[in-house]
């Protein structure tokens, strides 16, 4: 996994609540057996004017010019500003892969669905929670200032907006440690292999129907 330490980037606003993972990456693209290549079909139904299918040349498709990601001022954005309950619905990690493949490094929203939130950390995507009133202000700031860039400092747990205002955010210490160091969860868990084996031998005695 890529490390996440400090990131400075252009912010794109997505002003909708309850953005579900079907909207982030529609089902037809889930047939892929790879983790890469989902960027061009991120938000497919909103981003293009005609339906898309796997295997198409997406660079030739007609774009919905009203959709934020397609507007010239937001090209190259790497921070997504979003509304409440972002990533609800299906557990598909393809939603996170689509965001990272597109180039998004962090999402800032008032709340996330639990499974999406977990999946993000496993892929070096930082989901930041800030209060609704702060987010309202950030939407205004981004919309009023073309080229607005934010800096995210994970070590300090701060978002610094284009105006220079700094906002503190919370992140679980374990998850922060893994992101800062780009650590692989499985490797960490296998350090406890003996404890897992001990648990299993105890359970075999107590609850043999489970083993």
């Amino acid at each position: 996994m890529d490390k996440f330490v400090v990131h400075k980037g252009l912010v794109v606003p997505l002003d909708r609540s309850n953005v579900d993972t079907d909207a982030i990456i529609p089902k037809q693209y889930l047939k892929s057996i790879s983790k890469t290549g989902f960027g061009p079909t991120l938000f497919d139904d909103w981003r293009y004017t005609e339906p898309g299918e796997p295997g198409m040349d997406h660079s030739n498709r007609s774009l919905n010019e009203n959709f934020a990601l397609n507007q010239p001022r937001y090209q190259g954005a790497s921070i997504l500003l979003a509304r409440e309950n972002f990533g609800c619905g299906s557990s598909r990690e393809h939603a996170v892969w689509a965001l990272t493949d597109y180039g998004i490094k962090a999402v800032i929203a008032p709340s996330y669905a639990d499974i999406f939130f977990n999946n993000s950390f496993k892929n070096g995507l930082l989901p930041i929670v800030l209060s609704e009133s702060i987010i309202d202000g950030l939407f205004n700031e981004v919309e009023a200032n073309e080229g607005a860039e934010f800096t995210i400092d994970l070590e300090q747990k701060k978002v610094i907006s284009a105006s220079g205002t700094s906002y503190d955010f919370e992140v679980d210490e374990f998850r922060k440690h893994c992101l800062l160091n780009g650590l692989d969860d499985i490797g960490l868990t296998l350090q406890h292999a003996d404890a897992i084996r001990q648990y299993e031998s105890k359970r075999k005695q107590e609850a043999p129907w489970l083993m």
Partner: peptide, 11 residues
């Protein structure tokens, strides 16, 4: 998610 599927398979 799929990362956790792999994690459960391995651990």
């Amino acid at each position: 998610g799929t990362s956790e599927v792999e994690h459960v398979m391995a651990t």
